[in-house]
């Protein structure tokens, strides 16, 4: 029972970590909290559905869907945020809200207000058992995929020049440019990565929910935002820590709160977040930052 709930917490926390990372990467480079991040997920979800409807095999459909998320993120930067480069944080934030609302309306009117069922392959239901301990296929997939994604991202950021440049840009964007590294490449990569993470998170999200709907992105982006703030805005390790912490708290409360106080669960989670921020205003693992573009 306790082991089960730990697995649940890790599984949920992993998805939150991917989401929070997606927000944090962009924030660390351009100082923008991209509230349209959730709509990137929605878009990936619809892309998965479309690919499956077109008869693509499941792995290929997932590949298409994740790529769509990544490309959409880059396109979003090009169309919506690049013209705003150098604008104030508030205008960037409002732009991201506008993009988010616009996409929701487009999904609602262009596709349907109704959730669309995404039939997951049947191997995604069922469970592995070790003795009298069982672990569901669903949570296992979430844990494995999040772990692989976190490792791949870490390797990218540590081992490649572009990754190193991104970490540097999070500290001091202008000096990275003084090294001859183009600003647009760094920013595009940040959006590409955030789109990839959104796409991956969307796959896990949809795999757990079996449907996509126009408003699907709202809850995850909110959770990601909370996780990123708790972890320390703009700090990548912070985002991961915040994501796992949020997952653990939510599962813990869901598992233990008596039904009578269950409606207050979200309020309790948020109070916990505020408490963390009172003790550590910069978050769990604050970002190192000199200045941004």
């Amino acid at each position: 029972m306790i082991a089960q709930q730990i697995i649940n917490a890790v599984s949920l926390g992993g998805v939150y970590a991917l989401l929070a990372l997606g927000l944090a990467i962009v924030f660390s480079i351009v100082g923008l909290i991209n509230f349209a991040h959730g709509e990137l997920m929605t878009l990936s979800g619809y892309a998965l559905l479309a690919a499956l409807v077109f008869g693509l095999p499941f792995p290929a459909a997932v590949l298409v869907a994740v790529s769509c998320g990544a490309l959409a993120a880059v396109a979003m930067e090009r169309v919506a945020f690049r013209p705003m480069r150098g604008a104030s944080v508030t205008s960037l934030l409002l732009t991201s809200f506008a993009v988010s609302s616009l996409l929701k309306v487009v999904f609602q009117n262009g596709i349907s207000a109704r959730p669309q069922a995404v039939a997951m392959p049947s191997w995604m239901t069922g469970a592995f058992s070790f003795g009298d301990f069982t672990i569901g296929v669903g949570p296992s997939i979430s844990i494995v995929v999040s772990a692989l994604a976190l490792i791949a991202l870490e390797l990218f950021l540590r081992r490649t020049v572009t990754g190193t440049a991104m970490r540097a840009a999070a500290e001091d964007f202008n000096v990275v440019r003084l090294m001859g590294i183009p600003a647009s490449r760094i920013i595009a990569t940040a959006f590409l990565l955030s789109g990839l993470l959104a796409g991956l998170a969307a796959m896990l999200w949809v795999a757990q929910r079996a449907s996509v709907d126009p408003l699907m992105g709202f809850t995850p982006v909110l959770k990601a935002f909370i996780a990123a703030v708790v972890g320390g805005l703009g700090s990548l390790p912070g985002a991961v820590a915040g994501g796992f912490l949020l997952g653990i708290i939510e599962v813990l409360l869901q598992a233990t709160l008596p039904a009578a106080v269950a409606p207050y669960r979200d309020a309790i989670v948020l109070s916990g977040v505020i408490a963390v921020l009172l003790v550590r205003p910069q978050g769990l693992i604050p970002a190192v930052r000199v200045q941004r573009s």
Binding site: Q4, N8, A255
Partner: peptide, 21 residues
């Protein structure tokens, strides 16, 4: 047994574990 959820809640794993146990 009884369990509750919040509408729009992403994750039912804790509730499901409660059912299983």
């Amino acid at each position: 047994g009884r369990g509750t959820f919040t509408m729009g809640q992403p994750d039912f794993s804790a509730e499901i574990t409660n059912i299983k146990s």
